[in-house]
Structures are given as structure tokens and as C-alpha cells.
Amino acid sequence: MMNDKGVTVQDYKDELAIELQNTLDYWSKHTVDEVNGGFYGKISNANTVDGTAPKGAVLNARILWSFAAAHNLNPVHDLRLADRAYQYIVDHIIDQEYGGVYWTVDYQGRPLDTKKQVYALAFTIYALSEYFLAKGDEVIRDHALRLYRVLLKHSFDAEHGGYLEAFNREWQDMDDLRLSNKDANEKKTMNTHLHVLEAFTNLYRIWPDAGLKMQIIGLLNDFQHHIIDPNTSRMHLFFDERWNSKSNIISYGHDIEASWLLLEAAEVIGNHQLAEDIKKLAVKMADACLEGLDDDGALWYEKDPSANHIVKEKHWWVQAEAMVGFYNAWQISGCHDFLTISYKNWNFVKQSILDRQNGEWFWGVYEDGQLMAQEDKVGLWKCPYHNSRACIELIKRIK
């Protein structure tokens, strides 16, 4: 298959293999904290290290997943940084007393923000499952299963379905449930449900338990019946415990990301009817995201329909998800336009998001094309996961 400029999918695959190696090399070279252990919690856009920054559960889990997944794709990628991330998570991030994971520890590995954010717990399960696939050590799977069980015990809403957002260290209710300052303070969120689904899907690969399968089916039903608007094929972002929507913001990046993650979940558990239903939904979701595409192939950040305002920033993670999501839509539908969009998005990344001087991907660019230079290169949210996963996922899909 060739695009309008004569570039084949094999060319695409070859470029992504190089970029995956570049990404892993950056994290190996720049992020290892040889003084205090683990990885630095913050590195600026210009590669200035903040050696006293907090170290996040999500950052460490995503490092673990990225290096384990790269090794599982091709053993030429070694596991040394995955081993390091795993040991740091076990020694410092997992709460050995109350279960779950801390949101952050300080730069020396001492508990800092001890709230139990289910999002962070999900990413740790996701990463441990991938690492087990690489190592085969039952102790790793045991860690993942303990985290899964504590998540179900405290977060699963048996009455209304879905998962509650956050708790204090002792798993009691708390006032501030927000994942970040940008989020609404609500009991259920699309974002946490999406990554609980992703975590459970990866866990099912190493532990095909009937109860876990039912949880995955329940999550897929939550997306179809509560989270995705049947009229627009777009997701609502925030909810109360009864699934009443509390926001009308459209997140283009999350919509295109969910379009392929939902299908992956249905396929991994072998539910063919759900998979066929979600294939149709995935194409509709990709279609709905076309509104957020710029002429250069990049996908904008979000839209507020009530103000008819689009935030036309182009964030690194949104582009990574667009590369996979539109490719997935092409695989399902055969519509060549989706493949062309995936190519164009990668070209935008090469031109505007790759930091060819200092390595890794910039956070993004503003509407006028100016670099978002004040944002992290490494941080609580800036991790190797979205870009490495896009490379890994597309390499696996391109035959």
C-alpha cells in the first residue's frame, strides 16, 4: 500500500522502528537517577534536570511498560531500564501497608502524595503485566494481581457499574478526586475508565480469568452505554456516580485513542460479537475526529461546543494516538483516506514534534506553530509511553 507521495507502509514501519530506538536511547541516556535511584522526576524542554522533583507512579509505570513492550516486540531492545523501573516501583511506589500505589514519592523515594488515584493503579497493573510477558517471573504477576484485587475491592461500583476515581491512602473517601488541575472534580471519569480497561486487557493476556473477563465486558458496556454519545460518537469526560455527564468538552486525542483501545480489549478476550460492534463504533469515532484535523495532518487538542471554541494546540500524545487510531480505522474500513491521515500525522510529528537536537518529542506547538517550550520533556505526565506505544503498535500492525 502506497500513499500519494509514493511512501509505502513498509517505509512507515522502518521509520517508526528507528524512532522507537531513538526514544528508548533518550530515556536510557538522560533520565536515570544514579544518585537517588530510579529516574529523574522532571527534565525541562532543554534537557535541564531537576534532581529534587517528585517522582510519579505514572511516570515509572510508563517507563516500565515502554521498555518491556519494546523488548517483547524485538528482544534486541534490552530490559535493563525495565528492570530498574520495576524494582523502583516495588521498593518505593507500591504501598505495602494499605495496598495500591502512591501518586508521588519525593526525589529520595519517600512517600509524598499518598492519595490512591485509580488511574495510577491501572498503569502499574498495565506495566507489570507487560513486564511479566518479558520475564515470566510469577512474583511479577503476583504484584499485578494484588493491585487488581485492591482496585476491585475499593473502586468498583457494584451498584452503578464503573470505577470511582480516587481515595486517600487508607482507601477512604476524599474531597479532591482530580487527576490534575485541568480536570473536573467528579467521581467517575472517561480517562480513568479508558486506562483501567487498558490495564485489565493486558492483565488478561497473562491471567485469562473469567471474573476479569466479565470486568472487561462491563467496561466495554460502560463505554457504549454511558461514556460515548450515540449521536455524536464522541466521549463525555466527567460523570457523577450514576453516570450523569458533567462536561461537554470534546477531547479529540482521547476519542481517537479510545477508538482502537476498545477494539483491542474486545479482541483480546475473544468476544467476536462485541468486536464486530466496536469495529463499527471505532470507524464512527475516527470519522468524528476529522473535525479536529488541521490541514498539516495534526490533530488539535480539544473543543468546547458550548462556546464553539477549539483549542488548536497540537500535543505530542494526541498525535501519537492519531497515528494509531486512523491506521486502525483504515484497517477496519479499507478507506484509504484514514491511512493517508495517519501518514500525514507522522509527517507532522517529524517536522514539528521530534526534537532532533536534544532528543525525544516536544510537548507540542501552539496554534501559531510556536513551541510549547515551557513544558517538560520528562515529568509526571511526559513519559515515553504514547510515542513508544504508537511506534510499537504500528510496527506490529504493518505486515
Rank of each mutant, 00 (worst) to 15 (best):
T340S: 06
G109V: 10
D157P: 02
S247E: 11
Q96T: 06
E19V: 10
D137S: 13
G379K: 00
L81R: 14
G37E: 04
E302K: 10
S28G: 14
I341P: 08
D294R: 12
H309G: 10
E257F: 12
L212W: 02
I125T: 07
Q172L: 04
G6Q: 00
M285N: 04
A69P: 03
M235F: 10
H77D: 11
N231E: 15
M323V: 09
S247I: 06
Y163C: 10
S233P: 03
Q273T: 13
V90E: 08
H336F: 11
N358R: 15
L145D: 02
K153V: 06
Y366D: 02
Q351C: 08
W103L: 14
V365M: 01
G109K: 06
S259C: 15
D296I: 00
E34L: 08
P75W: 09
E264Y: 06
L339A: 09
K377R: 10
P230M: 15
Y126H: 02
N191V: 15
N168D: 15
Q172Y: 04
L79E: 10
M2Y: 14
P208N: 10
N328G: 03
G161K: 12
A266P: 04
H236Y: 14
G38H: 03
N74G: 04
I18E: 15
G56T: 02
F338H: 00
G359E: 05
V90Y: 02
D376T: 07
V349Q: 02
A61P: 03
F239A: 05
G51T: 01
L354A: 09
G211F: 09
